[in-house]
Computed example of a mutant assay.
Amino acid sequence: MSPREAPDDRLQQAMKRVLLATLPGLLALFWFYGWGVLINLILAASTALLIEAGVARLRRQPLQPTLSDGSALVSATLLAAAMPPYCPWWLTVTAVASGLLFGKHLYGGIGKNPFNPAMLGFALAMLLFPQPMTHWPAHGMSLQAAFAQVLNLGQAPDAWVQATALDSLRINKSLTMDELFAANPAFGRFGGRGVEWINLAFLAGGLFLLQRRVIAWQAPVGMLTSLFVVSLLCWNGAGSDSHGSPLFHLLSGATLLGAFFIITEPVSGAKSSLARLLFGVGVGLLTYLIRTWGGYPDGVAFAVLLMNLCVPALERFAAARQTQVQS
């Protein structure tokens, strides 16, 4: 399916399969963090549909094709999965609205966006509101407490928010890796507590997309391989100056969500096989660099946006290589 053709049955079927593939990861998020995940999803989906309807009305376009193609719901779902559960309602709304308006409709709508809309919305929210974007809960809440927290109607419990495993590792100066895993509740067995299982759940959904040929293998393999290799080369064992093992980086943050659901977006990502592979390699390398030496604990969103800028160059390089091989 060409990413620039008009919305049709093939596009709708692909979007439905992507939404279906997110279910294992969303259920894992709900299991570990509770009602805040569902509230994020409802807010994100409602905002996305309102934005799509509003833009269609301004452009005097029919509503039904715009709302039924599923692309806005996919972007909203992926963004909601990346947002901290129980973050203020306006933060989710702002992230989704800015992602769709500045990452999609500013360039003419579906099939024309040079940036991934979900990651653009996430990055803008991170840059503008860094404090609430880094407040990840240690556990879930009751439904009533969840609404009170999202609507800012009550005080959050003490010690309810904690630094993520990636953030704790980034600012660590004295503890060994063994001490971090033993003493810090944000760490699980291999990666972030709970996050390692969430990543594996998104891996299951990604494998489903590969099996159904909704996505190609080159970008995910390129990203995961480069992230594994660079983290292995820079790994300093269990010392206090360690940047984390390869398994830690694969099972922490939004690694597998990014590998199978974000960088495989057909419009803003690369199109040819070699370019897709190089695109994934670049995202993996940049993710590690941002996590280790950058100012943000998880660099997937910024890595994707930076590599979106490189797509034309990657496509030219891939075309030149193909011409050389054929000659």
Rank of each mutant, 00 (worst) to 15 (best):
L143S: 07
T323L: 14
A303E: 12
A301H: 06
N308V: 07
I171E: 08
M119S: 08
L124Y: 03
V195S: 15
T164N: 02
M223C: 07
A303R: 01
L26M: 15
F147N: 05
D241F: 08
A123Q: 10
A148Y: 14
G121I: 09
S242Q: 03
L151Q: 12
A53K: 00
F228W: 15
K112V: 01
E315M: 04
T92Y: 00
F190L: 15
S268G: 07
N40P: 06
A48F: 09
A238C: 04
F202V: 09
L120R: 03
M141Y: 13
L49Q: 13
L286N: 09
A145Y: 06
A186R: 04
A182R: 10
N152L: 15
S252R: 04
A156S: 15
G244Q: 07
K104T: 07
V304F: 03
L91R: 01
G154V: 11
I51W: 05
F122R: 15
D158H: 11
S252M: 02
F181K: 15
A270K: 02
H139R: 15
F302W: 13
P88K: 06
Q322E: 14
H243M: 12
L247R: 11
V267K: 06
Q155S: 15
F228H: 04
A45Q: 13
P7D: 04
L100T: 06
S231K: 03
G121S: 05
L128H: 00
L143Y: 08
T255S: 09
A6I: 10
L120I: 09
G140L: 12
L286H: 06
P114Q: 01
A254K: 08
S273C: 08
S2D: 11
T22A: 14
G25F: 11
A56M: 05
S242W: 00
L233N: 02
N113E: 08
T287R: 01
A48E: 05
V37R: 01
A45L: 14
L169M: 11
Q322K: 14
F181Y: 13
G205D: 03
L232N: 07
T287C: 10
D167C: 01
A48L: 04
S68E: 14
F147K: 09
P65N: 05
L285Q: 10
D158R: 10
F261H: 08
S226C: 12
V311A: 03
V267R: 07
L11R: 10
F302K: 02
